[in-house]
Amino acid sequence: MLEIKNLHVKLEEEDKQILKGVDLTVEAGKVHAIMGPNGSGKSTLSYVLSGRDGYEVTEGSATLDGEDLLEMEPEERAAAGVFLAFQYPVEIPGVGNMTFLRTAVNAQRKARGEDELSAADFLKLVRAKAKSLKIDADMLKRPVNVGFSGGEKKRNEILQMAMLEPKMCILDETDSGLDVDAMKLVAEGVNALRDEGRGFLVITHYQRLLDHIKPDVVHIMADGRIVKTGGPDLALEVENNGYSDILAEVN
């Protein structure tokens, strides 16, 4: 489904190469995890896939079901089914969470040629999904992410994911800043969305999130490349021995 080939990316402003030839294929229904030390390029990959400014692709390709993602605007990628759960969800004062969600849902429906959801249907849907993520009505009324705790922000990301029903979910360090209970709640939300037609790319520094979201494939990323790929055991190896052993072995 998601196919990344020989992806090279540098920062637009500086002459600094971040990704140096990433190859990765995520099949529908599978959960892939990318692990790696800080600065290895994990977050850059997520931003490049979702179309954030500031990066320049110098070589390679990224497609979703054969469609060239790199040519699309961020909202077109979203409509095509790419969802990024941000490591640092953005606060938007003045925009109600509910308005935000409804605008996003309907924009995507419109882009796909579907009818917009009526206010009543939308409300019913959002309430049901929010309930399962333990997001209370008050949080929905507040401005997007403003004054939310770390856990609330991440749950809000998962709520958006649940509402938008993307094909390809990218979770960027979703576990950062979460305590165990909050992480469980988030993981449950993600697991509930696991589906034959949906792929996941879970970016994380630590193994602990993978206790709750079981990956099918684990990749280790270092210095802008995927240096090792294996099964769930690979994550445990990192947990026990750290990155240095693996990196030494690769080198």
Partner: peptide, 22 residues
């Protein structure tokens, strides 16, 4: 904020208007 909205599928024009209203 504009990128966040666009990453959720809101076209750039709508996203700009939304942030302007906010």
């Amino acid at each position: 904020a504009l990128f966040y909205l666009r990453s959720r599928g809101v076209p750039v024009k709508d996203a700009t208007n939304m942030l302007t209203l906010a």
